[in-house]
Amino acid sequence: MNKKGHVLNAILLALGLGVILTVDPRSFEPTADSAFLLAQKIGQLSLPVVLGALFPDVDTAFGKHRKTLHNLPVLAIFLAFPLVFGNLQFVWIGVATHYVLDMVGSKRGIALFYPLSPQEYDLPTGVATSSKHADAVTVVVTVAELGVLAGVHYYLFSLDVSLADAAASFTAVL
Rank of each mutant, 00 (worst) to 15 (best):
T97C: 15
G5R: 01
A172K: 15
A53I: 03
A168T: 15
V19T: 09
E29S: 12
V58N: 06
F81S: 07
Q119S: 10
S106R: 05
S130G: 12
S130F: 09
S162N: 07
L72E: 03
L116A: 14
H70K: 06
H70T: 01
L51Y: 01
S131V: 09
V50C: 02
L17I: 10
L112C: 12
D102M: 08
G18S: 06
I20T: 10
V7G: 00
S117H: 09
Y155M: 08
T97V: 08
A172C: 01
L112A: 06
T129E: 14
F36V: 10
S27F: 13
K132G: 15
T68Q: 05
S162V: 07
T142K: 06
V58G: 00
V49S: 00
D135H: 11
E120G: 03
V91P: 00
L101F: 05
H6G: 06
T97N: 11
V84H: 05
I11H: 03
I42A: 12
F113S: 12
V104R: 01
D160W: 02
T125F: 14
T22H: 08
P73G: 03
V7T: 13
L45K: 07
I42L: 01
G5A: 10
S158G: 00
D59M: 07
G86A: 06
T125D: 00
L159S: 03
K4N: 07
A136K: 13
K41F: 01
Y114H: 14
V152F: 11
L101W: 06
A80L: 15
L37F: 13
E145K: 02
T125Q: 01
E120V: 11
A14D: 01
G109H: 05
T129N: 11
S106W: 09
A53W: 00
V84W: 11
S27Y: 09
V84S: 01
A166D: 01
K107A: 02
I110N: 04
V23A: 06
K4S: 12
L174T: 06
G16W: 04
L174E: 01
P82W: 05
A111L: 08
H6M: 07
P48T: 05
H70S: 04
I20L: 06
E145C: 09
A76I: 14
H98I: 08
F28Y: 15
P48E: 09
A168H: 12
G63T: 04
S162D: 08
P25Q: 03
E120H: 06
